[in-house]
């Protein structure tokens, strides 16, 4: 992993069209500004973790769960 040191207001350029700026530093928090083409996907890493967790949980479902659900859903 490439590690760079930046000060407040300084930035990093990735390719020709992505720019990451250190906008604010407050204690243990860093605010970053990101300038990128509209089609670039930018997510907090936690989003991926949450999706992965949801996938794992979903993969453990069984037809018995669906049968249970089906009973509940069709009850008026």
């Amino acid at each position: 992993m490439l590690v760079l040191t930046r000060k407040l207001g300084e930035s990093i350029a990735i390719d020709d069209n992505i720019k990451i700026v250190v906008v604010q530093i407050k204690g243990k928090q860093v605010r970053l500004g990101i300038k990128a083409p509209q089609e670039t996907k930018i997510h907090r890493e936690e989003v991926y973790q949450a999706i992965q967790d949801q996938n794992t949980e979903a993969s453990q479902s069984t037809p018995a769960d669906i049968a249970r659900l089906s009973d509940a859903l069709t009850k008026k």
């Binding site: 999706i51 949801q54 996938n55 979903a58 479902s61 659900l69």
Partner: peptide, 18 residues
């Protein structure tokens, strides 16, 4: 959407984000 069906089925959820 992928579904999660917990033991309390009324809290079932769908992944709209992905």
């Amino acid at each position: 959407s992928i579904l999660t069906i917990p033991s309390d089925i009324t809290t079932m959820s769908a992944n709209l984000k992905a």
